[in-house]
Simulated scan of single mutants.
Amino acid sequence: MSEPSVWTKRRMGALMGGGVGLTIGFLFGSWSILQNGAGPRGVLSTLSKTMLSSAATFSFFLAIGSVIRNDSPILEAAHLRLMAPAPAVRSRSEGFQLMRARWEEERRRESSRS
């Protein structure tokens, strides 16, 4: 099973932002109408304008945020590489012993292949 693409994540972010924006727009628009009145355009027009502008704003920013937070394998590998613990500090003699042990292991592998 593969991960969703960047465009799928963008669309999902936009849809979630639209839903959140419509809800927030309804709440704040209703509060504004109750507090200040509907104005010359009427209740429905004022409420719908508030809801749509809020939905467009939230949708735009959540779509961008979803793309930015895209956890692609390349970015994840780079992050793991950056967050890896620092190598242990060893003395020169320990380093030489490890190097000689690796060389011996490589020689054994080469001799077993032949």
Rank of each mutant, 00 (worst) to 15 (best):
A84W: 10
G42T: 00
S32Y: 07
S66N: 10
G17R: 09
G29N: 03
A14C: 11
R109C: 01
F96Q: 14
E94F: 07
K49D: 09
N36D: 12
I64E: 04
A38N: 01
H79N: 11
R113D: 07
A63S: 14
V43N: 06
T23C: 15
K49I: 06
V43I: 12
E106H: 03
E104A: 13
G39F: 00
N70H: 14
S59G: 08
T23H: 06
R102V: 04
G21Y: 05
I24Y: 10
A84K: 14
M12F: 08
F58Q: 07
S53T: 10
G17M: 05
E110L: 14
T57N: 11
R81Q: 13
E106A: 13
R11Q: 05
G21T: 04
L80I: 02
D71H: 12
I24V: 15
M51C: 06
L34Y: 07
A55F: 02
S30F: 10
L52N: 04
W7E: 12
A14F: 15
M99N: 09
G21A: 07
G25V: 09
V89I: 13
A56I: 09
G13L: 07
R108A: 08
E76G: 00
G13S: 06
S48F: 05
S59E: 03
I64A: 13
M51G: 07
S111V: 01
G42N: 01
K9Q: 15
